[in-house]
Amino acid sequence: MEDPRRTLILGVGNILLRDEGFGVRAVERLAREHLWPEGVRLLDGGTKGLLLMPDIMDCDLLVVLDVVLGPEAPGTFYRLEGEDLRRSLGFRDSMHQTDLQDTLIACDLAGHRPETIVLGMHPFDWTTLAAELTPEAEALLPAFCDKVLATLAALGIAPTSAA
């Protein structure tokens, strides 16, 4: 029996600010290169915050692809879940409309917070206004997508075929 859970793979970030758009570029690539089974949805969430609640509340497992500022060097891949995710803070304090953690808390308050895993890369540049990733981030995109696939595979979720 396949995993009956509804899964949402959600790329978030702002594609106008270089590597801020890394999660969106990753989900675009995963959607382009693979066919996914029914019950698995891939979505470019941009920076839509609370407006993503309809989609988030319709899933049981949420896999967020994002950029994460961690203790290691740019280009490091991180995985956050459970308490680690709860403790990490949104960008520059709490901006309640776009902040992902607050959106998840809002889902909780509204009645359904799915199990959540965040996979992210430490960005090289996320403050310059430009619609392309840095060359370094671009080069890491395939490896990052492989990590996403491996993480999903460990949960029993796999694409049905290459598109």
Binding site: V12, G13, N14, L16, L17, E20, G23, G46, T47, G49, D66, V67, V68, L69, G70, P71, E72, T76, F77, Y78, R79, L80, E83, D84, R87, S88, L89, G90, F91, R92, T98, L100, Q101, V118, L119, G120, P123, W126, L129, K147, T151
Partner: peptide
């Protein structure tokens, strides 16, 4: 605007991110 969505873990008290 512009809105951003980066998760900042550096202000975390304990760094327990799994590096994958």
């Amino acid at each position: 605007a512009c809105a951003v969505h980066v998760i900042d873990g550096r202000t975390n008290e304990v760094h327990k991110f799994k590096v994958v």
